[in-house]
């Protein structure tokens, strides 16, 4: 596999070309606006939450990219799962994610969300976040610095602009049975109400 900056740049440009060819002008415009206005749910699960506030401060100033923190899942576009996640926390994370309105995206922050990190043999943390929720972007590191998080946001912007059918929230609808089975296996008797039932009887 070729590595280095030039082939990488080439791949980005190719992606740009393919977006332009498949989408109409209006779709491209809407995707651009979505990519430049990302509301992040102000919620932290693990120690990664320590690295999130500095990202909003004067030194790193992520508001440049259009990222703002909001206090309620109803208004949020992006959920950052910041670090290790115990089953008890995961229940709350899933509830928050299901309350968010589409389109919605998840960033997994830190090694713990990828493979358990330093908690790989802990009885009380999950090892693979994407078994339970569709993750759109992983930022690895323990802990990732704010620069890494900003890089993650920039990559996510590219992904949002691509507007592909592989986006997490679409997968959560189409492959809900898979995610639900994993959640039920972990939580046992104490499961959440089903995602579809949350919307039963509502004519949205």
């Amino acid at each position: 596999m070729d590595e280095g900056f030039i082939p990488y740049q080439q791949s980005l440009e190719d992606e740009e070309q393919s977006i332009k060819s498949t989408q109409s002008v209006i779709e491209q415009a809407i995707a651009w606006f979505r990519a430049h206005s990302m509301f992040v749910l102000a919620y932290g699960t693990g120690c990664g939450a320590i690295e999130m506030p500095p990202t909003f401060t004067s030194r790193y100033d992520i508001e440049r990219l259009g990222v703002v923190g909001v206090a309620t899942p109803r208004q949020a576009d992006i959920l950052i799962v910041s670090g290790y996640c115990s089953p008890k926390t995961l229940k709350r994370v899933i509830r928050s994610y299901e309350q968010m309105s589409e389109p919605k995206y998840i960033i997994g922050l830190g090694s713990c969300t990828i493979n358990g990190g330093m908690y790989w043999d802990s009885y009380n943390t999950i090892k693979k976040l994407d078994d339970f929720l569709p993750v759109d972007m992983y930022v690895n590191g323990c802990m990732p610095r704010p620069e890494a998080l900003i890089e993650g946001f920039v990559k996510l912007q590219e992904k949002i602009r691509a507007n592909s059918s592989e986006a997490g929230y679409i997968q959560y609808r189409t492959r809900y049975a898979h995610y639900r089975a994993n959640q039920e296996r972990l939580f046992g008797t104490q499961v959440q109400p089903r995602y579809e039932e949350n919307f039963a009887g509502m004519n949205l």
Binding site: I114, G116, W120, D121, S122, Y123, I126, K127, K128, D131
Partner: peptide, 15 residues
């Protein structure tokens, strides 16, 4: 007597 690793192997998938 609780075997942490056995519990983790039984309940979680590793990447």
């Amino acid at each position: 007597e609780f075997d942490t690793l056995a519990y983790v192997n039984a309940h979680y998938d590793f990447r």
